[in-house]
Design a protein around this nucleic acid. Structure first.
Lengths: 142, 142
DNA sequence: AATTTAAATGAAAACCATTTCTACTTAATC
DNA sequence: GATTAAGTAGAAATGGTTTTCATTTAAATT
């Protein structure tokens, strides 16, 4: 994965601001899904003036650009993580430590087959989210 | 699918109230995902006194009992649909008319294989949601 | 390097879906 | 039919997210 964030931002017609870069750096460093408020708290350590709406706005823009992605979480809160692959959003999330890892396996073909056969509809996108416990968290418990 | 709602409710230790049954009947009749407020509006036609919190509470309880299920939707609002299969939550949702249809295909084995091999974690659950346009909506456009 | 301008930001306020609280009502058991 | 635990209405509170608007900044232009 290429993490030349300034270049990525330019390609999306987003200005390269220190705050935007900081959000991406935080998500890269943590490799864990975070809520806007959690990101904001980490931002406050770097910037003396940083508003929560700025974090929300940027997360939404970065999400639209597929640099980061939202987690489908049962509660109302939003969670974001840095995409390891911008076009493929299949991931394993650890319910204990929140770590997000890519799953390369994709059943797109098989699903397409079934949808064509039974539902006779058109697929526009799909979500595969596997919830579980990551290697580290399993070892801690064992 | 067996839709003996009173029996299903009893099994979950939920009292069989007219309002609970009405929520299930509405979701069965519509076969479309609905928000709590949308369900509430339909309920108001049947009951002269019906509070929105009652709808929320019941939806949550029914969801815990796997009779109904939540949709993973980009906006913050909750959406529910009646499960066609209580143990298997793979579905195709139409982005135009909101119809929800079951997908029987399941890649659990393949995913399990990859998670064991690469991630070395433990799977607890998974979500497969396919978004698209259903047969009816495709034909309308064509 | 200074000028320009469209985009980004902070702070306060608004928004609104969801939850809580309390007193009242009802389903189910005996 | 009486009892009791569960369910409900209505009002108020909650809290995550968005809007507004005045100010600041990135970066294109001169």
């Amino acid at each position: 994965m290429l993490n030349d964030f300034p270049l990525t931002l330019k390609k999306l017609n987003l200005k390269v601001t220190p705050k935007r870069l900081a959000i991406l750096e935080i998500l890269l460093k943590e490799s864990v899904y975070l809520s806007p408020e959690e990101i904001w708290k980490k931002m406050k350590k770097r910037f003396n003036r940083i508003g929560l709406p700025t974090v929300y706005r940027n997360l939404e823009e970065l999400s639209e650009g597929n640099i980061i992605s939202k987690i489908n979480h049962p509660n109302r809160q939003l969670y974001y993580y840095l995409c390891q692959n911008r076009s493929h959003h299949h991931h394993f999330i650890c319910l204990s430590c929140r770590k997000v890892e890519d799953i390369s396996f994709c059943a797109a073909k098989e699903i397409e087959g079934e949808v064509k056969r039974n539902i006779r509809g058109k697929i526009l996108s799909h979500i595969l989210q596997v919830n579980g416990l990551c290697k580290n968290c399993l070892e801690k418990k064992g």
